[in-house]
Nucleic acid binder design. Structure first.
Lengths: 282, 282
DNA sequence: TTCAACTCGGTACAGAGTACGGATTAATGC
DNA sequence: GCATTAATCCGTACTCTGTACCGAGTTGAA
């Protein structure tokens, strides 16, 4: 019953999937939300239930293939460029044909998300104690966010709990199993670690995206921007910001070194957790 | 020269602001980016340079008024609902008139951002040491993100460094001034604290937004969702996730208690920083 | 053979950002 | 006083979005 790999391998034939509750009827601008549609449909999609229907022509596509096309588009051009038309073009089909397989764009993104979670192979036992395991979790997430930056733009509350998302959560929790924390603390610790990776990756990815968009590196941008700022601002007013900003700029050769920020923060967070664990352990 | 309060009080008359480099010519779907346009124009906008032109009819609006209208819309209905048409309606003017004051939507959002930063009054000296000050910084940001959830959706790399953003950064850095950290570490520490507040707030705000959108609380949603999941998933496969998820659910009466997560993480992060500071101080 | 179920996809619609250009208004130069 | 010039204001139009709707083609079962 449980597909540990990529879901939706053989989900087709859901018929014309009409929405049950269209509470936001217009087109969906702005950020993409997760888990908007009918829960039952979403679960069937993610977990690959729903057998092939008997009648009708054989489907040319699968949900998985559509999701992979979507991931390719989003990886290459960002979530903003992910349109149903673009995905349809890529799989060589009319735009509206996608709606045979997927109720809408939101659900497609849900499937895309769970699919990329499938990349975290959960190299099951990382040697070492909880600290090494949590470090591994953090770096895994950091890397995933870099491989698929668009995941940062998907609001992940009420996540579509597909097989891979569930596997991921379970795996992350097991890093802090049996070290004296309560269940609530375990959840909070994992949340803290993943949250740090997410935040740090968000900064890095935003910067890379800005560079792609403008053709200027952070440093180049700053060199163009800061003299203009100097004409306007009295640096003495912001002595600390000016000093620290300059120090960071010259040290990194850019406005920020995001990897340093990630690693620095990670060690501080782990240190903080260590204090808690020691208190429980003894 | 330096406006410490809300900028743009008297910026008008920038003429028809034609874009210099329209490298993304179409309409701007998806997430909103900060700092996209001409740096010079942006700085003038944010810092309130540019005197009233002599010729021509008296302007009926100010950039500040437009920005405040935009903030009202975004606060009430989210960044997705923030359209130029809506803002224009609210200030009682034709849509295209806004483009007399602001080069485009991206720059409007920049001004909106710096305006809300102006709410952080920087109650200058918080009693206590660096830890109390950093706690204050974290809670200030946490509260700001809750008052203006849309700020979380604005990619903030290459921030439009307006007067209030600069004041905020400077203030936050001064919390860890003179305690033995290098400039780089100061920046990293502030970044870590603000990043944690941002990440925690993001989860809370996403959940609130999901509730508004669907009319279901997290708990109600979970009660509808989880039995469907049970039909499909073998709980033994995900023993840890199932146990912890259930514990968190029953303890909070919801899938997560975000305030707890924020405070828990904040203390861990501060503990981690404390270790670093102690190492330097002695 | 008939028919119901299914896939495929063309057309249409509302709503987004904003380029363009015309109408109106006000201050300056003669 | 009058023409000139620089602003403000804004209606129209264009492209791109997600997707509702419906007709056409395809297949397995009765």
């Amino acid at each position: 019953m449980l597909a540990k790999t990529v879901p939706c391998t053989h989900i087709t034939g859901l018929g014309r999937m009409t929405r049950v509750s269209t509470d936001h009827s217009g087109p969906q601008y702005g950020p993409q939300y997760s888990g908007s549609g009918d829960p039952k449909r979403s679960i069937e999609l993610l977990w690959g239930i729903q057998e092939r229907p008997k009648r009708g022509p054989k489907p040319r596509l699968t949900v998985e293939r559509i999701a992979r096309a979507g991931i390719e588009v989003a990886d290459a051009e960002g979530l903003a460029a992910l349109s149903m038309r673009q995905v349809a073009d890529r799989v060589g089909v009319g735009t509206m044909s996608l709606y045979t397989y997927v109720p809408g764009k939101a659900e497609l993104i849900d499937v895309m998300l769970d699919t990329v979670y499938g990349e975290l192979v959960a190299a099951d036992e990382v040697p070492g104690g909880w600290r090494a395991k949590l470090e591994h979790v953090a770096r895994q997430n950091w890397a995933l966010f870099h491989r698929h930056p668009w995941t940062l733009q998907v609001a992940a509350s009420r996540p579509a709990l597909g097989p891979n998302a569930t596997t991921k959560y379970d795996y992350e929790l097991r890093a802090v199993e049996g070290i004296g924390l309560t269940d609530l603390e375990m959840d909070a610790v994992v949340s803290l670690i993943v949250g740090h990776a997410e935040g740090a990756a968000r900064r890095a990815v935003d910067a890379a995206e800005a560079e792609r968009r403008t053709g200027l590196t952070d440093l180049q941008w700053w060199e163009a921007y800061s003299p203009l700022l100097d004409e306007v601002v009295d640096a003495n007013q912001f002595a600390t910001a000016a000093r620290v900003g300059q120090a960071a700029g010259t040290a990194y050769g850019a406005a920020h070194d995001f990897e340093y920020g990630f690693e620095f923060g990670l060690q501080r967070v782990l240190d903080g957790i260590e204090g808690l664990v020691r208190g429980r352990g003894s």
